Simulated assay, not measured.
Amino acid sequence: MSSPARPRMTGIGRVLVIVYAIMALGATGRSFVQIVERFDEAPLAYTLSAASAVVYIVATLALVFAGRRGWYVVAWVAIVFELVGVLVVGTLSLVAPELFAHDSVWSFYGRGYLFVPLVLPFLGLWWLATHRPAARQTTPDTAAVAS
């Protein structure tokens, strides 16, 4: 007897993963070029670009595997970190522009990325909140083992 098919990510979840993957690629490429070519010009901004790239990579992977409980928690942590990062860096780039000699991915709330970094974590958190992984059902056999 075959096992039931695992539901695949569809609709907005799939679009969300694609956008996160694009942001991961864009932020990784940007930070790599910035760090290799001009790190001494704006180390804070370029380090923040690299940090955002890591966050986007982790968030992409976590959203893909969010059906597994551990990855679901990782997705929450990564996307909350992303939201805090874009809000803090965006605000600092407005009130203390001298800290950012050059833009990072999250500078001015992601202005260089059409404000996608500002909107994306809200969509990600909404998706996670509305698509919780199913709780594992307890059968009499597993209940006996658990006790």
Rank of each mutant, 00 (worst) to 15 (best):
H102G: 00
G112R: 02
F115V: 05
L120W: 01
L114G: 13
V86Y: 03
L87Y: 08
A96V: 14
G90C: 05
L120I: 11
S107M: 07
F108K: 15
V86A: 04
L99V: 05
V105C: 03
V116A: 07
S93I: 08
F115Q: 12
L92F: 10
P97H: 11
G85L: 05
P121K: 01
S93Q: 09
P121V: 00
R111Y: 13
T91P: 14
F115E: 10
A96F: 15
L99F: 07
V89H: 00
L118G: 02
V89A: 00
V119F: 06
E98Q: 15
H102S: 06
S107D: 08
V116K: 06
L94D: 12
L99T: 01
W106G: 01
V88I: 15
D103C: 03
V86F: 08
W106T: 09
V89M: 02
R111P: 02
V89P: 00
S93W: 12
V88C: 05
G85H: 01
V86K: 00
D103Y: 09
G90I: 04
V89C: 00
V119N: 08
G110Y: 02
V88E: 07
P121D: 08
F108C: 06
S104D: 07
L87G: 03
V119H: 10
S104F: 00
F115S: 05
E98T: 13
G112M: 11
L120M: 13
V86E: 04
L94G: 06
S107C: 08
L99G: 01
G110P: 03
V89R: 01
F100P: 00
T91M: 14
L87E: 14
H102W: 07
R111G: 08
F100E: 03
S107W: 05
G85W: 00
W106I: 09
F100M: 04
V88D: 09
L87Q: 12
V95F: 15
A101G: 05
S93C: 07
G110A: 11
G110V: 04
F115T: 07
L92Q: 07
W106Q: 10
F115A: 03
F108Y: 14
L94I: 14
A101T: 12
G110Q: 07
L120T: 03
V89Y: 02
S107K: 02
L99W: 08
Y113E: 10
G90V: 04
A96R: 14
L92M: 11
F100Y: 15
L94P: 05
W106L: 12
L87C: 11
F100N: 01
L94A: 13
F108R: 15
F108I: 13
G85A: 09
R111W: 10
Y109N: 06
P121N: 06
V119R: 12
V116Q: 04
P97S: 09
G112V: 06
